[in-house]
Write a protein that binds this DNA or RNA. Sequence first.
DNA 1: CCCTAGCCCATGCTATCCCACGAAATCCCA
DNA 2: TGGGATTTCGTGGGATAGCATGGGCTAGGG
Lengths: 166, 166
Amino acid sequence: MRQPFLGTHINKIDAKGRVSVPAAFRQVLAEDAFAGVVCFPSFTSEALEGCAMGFMNEISNSVAERYELFSNDQEDLSDLIFAESATLAWDSNGRIQLPPEMIAFARLEGTAAFVGMGKTFRIWEPETLARSQAERRAQAREKGLSLRLRSAGPESRPDSRPESAS
Amino acid sequence: MRQPFLGTHINKIDAKGRVSVPAAFRQVLAEDAFAGVVCFPSFTSEALEGCAMGFMNEISNSVAERYELFSNDQEDLSDLIFAESATLAWDSNGRIQLPPEMIAFARLEGTAAFVGMGKTFRIWEPETLARSQAERRAQAREKGLSLRLRSAGPESRPDSRPESAS
DNA sequence: CCCTAGCCCATGCTATCCCACGAAATCCCA
DNA sequence: TGGGATTTCGTGGGATAGCATGGGCTAGGG
């Protein structure tokens, strides 16, 4: 069982283009055999998507099994993911080096915000992130999304008490 | 089966920003593999929400199962929940260190009130808590709210305290 | 021959560990 | 049933290890 990626960590990109992957994320990623990260440009945001190698495998398998991770339309996306993703091994200090295209895509300049998203994480230019979050928060409030959190996944809650219902 | 978080415990925050997690809560959290707490700002109050890592995992999985990967809703939820949460491991004495943003969010100053909420708990600045409780009580009175003993429905969440017990 | 990727070492900072103390709750036995 | 002994819990402070970051050194490729 893999722990989720949690929290937001802002790190610097040094002159050589290196960034420390937050220790907390490295710990999560350490459950994977590959000592590093897989990155690809996000489809929906001006940010990079990051995950463990194992997650890529899941995507690959899910698509093959037609598991419901992707809808039909989204299957095409998997092709894109694999094509545009890069495997970034970290050095002995836990730093990775982002390829120039990715730096450009997310418009990173000097700092990078690593944002936990559960099964994946994102890498943002901090200012862009702030703007995006404000927007998202407004939307969520509008839709009342936060309320649904409470009942998230009623079928998969192992600790709901079977106590002879209602 | 997880015991619920119960009661209110007020502890001090020391110069280093450390707080003892109440022993009673630690006992509940001990059922989880991760020796610590996950915290995030509450959506509805000027307080911090706390829970076990396992609870976060459940949310992570439910979100993944319920929404399509890369759908807007999935991202909104993930952003709201995971991005702002922190994993706080406790030391050998059962203390955690609250990140500055969280201290700021709940306006904590020197003391923290841990309030059991069943599956989760909250961390309040004691004065803020008192005000909030008074308000809530007034509202309840106004509405003529009376407690009805309902066995647990899918999302019944008994967060009203039966009496202002001492 | 220069530029870059990869590697290792150095450093300041902060979180974490460890030990100690005091108060309160608990236990135990008369 | 009461009082002393013992344990647990919350709190404080010093020591230590881990983390993020900067810089230098080497080897290989254009």
